[in-house]
Computed example of a mutant assay.
Amino acid sequence: MTAFELNVDKPVTLEMTGKFVAPSADWIHLSRILHDYELIVMTEGVLYLAGDSQQFAVSKGEYLLLPPLTKQYGYKSSECSFYWLHFQPVSSIQVADSAACTYDKGDNRILLPQSGTLRSLEKIIVMMKQLQDSVRNYNQDTLNSYMSTVILCELYNQCCDTNADQLKKTKQEQLYNDVVDYIKWSRSEHIKVSQIADYFGYNAKYLSHLFTVISGISLKQYILQQKMELAKYLLTDTNQNISEVSLQLGYKDCHNFMKSFKKIVGLTPTDFRNAYAKRLLFYK
């Protein structure tokens, strides 16, 4: 698969950004020639998009990066939604992606595979929403370009974490990864440490200690952090009220949710939502 080496010694130049929501299941992406890089981050459905002669089917939780001069066109209709970001790097080259996840040329370059799956879609969405809020409220080119660069660096870290394979070398580290995956899939439930320990067949104290040694934080704290990451996504990218968000995260008492959110994030759920209430929404 193709990959792109981007120079981030200086910030990329933001051209434009927004969120697109298809108006119906009959929508199909327009045809055009790209004049800059476009990053697409899928939030719902599947986008059927071609770049030159290559066809992509990009699903929720995945991204696609297309370079300048690409002939872009939809090849199949679908009802979907995605965030998009057009930018120009200081410099870039197209390379083979065979060594993408072990790439190391210093802090001023990142290597991004053309497409991939995100480890934390919610985190990227919140960052995209923060960028949109900056565009709407400040419209300062330098600030917006730096924020765009941070998003690309986060994308690189999510897709090309060189420590990912190292964490699977031992049985204990494999167990840690399995626990992390279990928590991410169960964030909308009221999960406890004892429940996770029973599921994997380990003593709760042993599992908690193991998790803390590897991650640096307690298992209970990690569960809470992951719930709040999902909460931030729901508050910024949906119209659910606070009570609905609370229920979706497995809280029976909305006040307990608000207290936990304030403790972790530093803002109340309402203040957090109001800080990023403006969307750059497109239906074309």
Rank of each mutant, 00 (worst) to 15 (best):
Y156Q: 13
L121N: 07
D104W: 07
S115R: 01
M128C: 13
D97F: 00
Y146F: 12
Q158T: 10
Q166D: 13
V193Q: 12
D133L: 09
E122A: 12
S188C: 14
Y138Q: 07
Q114R: 10
V180G: 03
S188Y: 14
D97H: 08
Y103N: 03
G201V: 06
K105N: 13
S120Y: 13
N137P: 01
S115Y: 00
C153T: 12
Q166R: 07
T102H: 08
Q114P: 00
Y138M: 05
S188N: 13
D104H: 11
L111K: 00
N108S: 14
N137G: 02
E173Q: 13
D165I: 10
H190R: 15
Q94W: 02
T149G: 02
V135D: 00
Y202W: 08
A197D: 05
W185T: 07
V135Q: 01
K205M: 05
A100M: 02
Q166T: 08
L112N: 00
Q88N: 07
K205E: 14
Q132D: 12
D178N: 08
A204H: 08
K184F: 04
S148W: 00
D104Y: 07
L121I: 06
W185L: 11
S148D: 03
R187H: 04
V180C: 12
G106H: 11
I191H: 06
V126L: 06
E189V: 05
L131C: 06
D97N: 14
L155R: 02
Q88S: 10
D107T: 11
K168Q: 14
E122P: 10
M128W: 03
H209A: 14
A204K: 12
R136A: 11
K169N: 08
A100H: 03
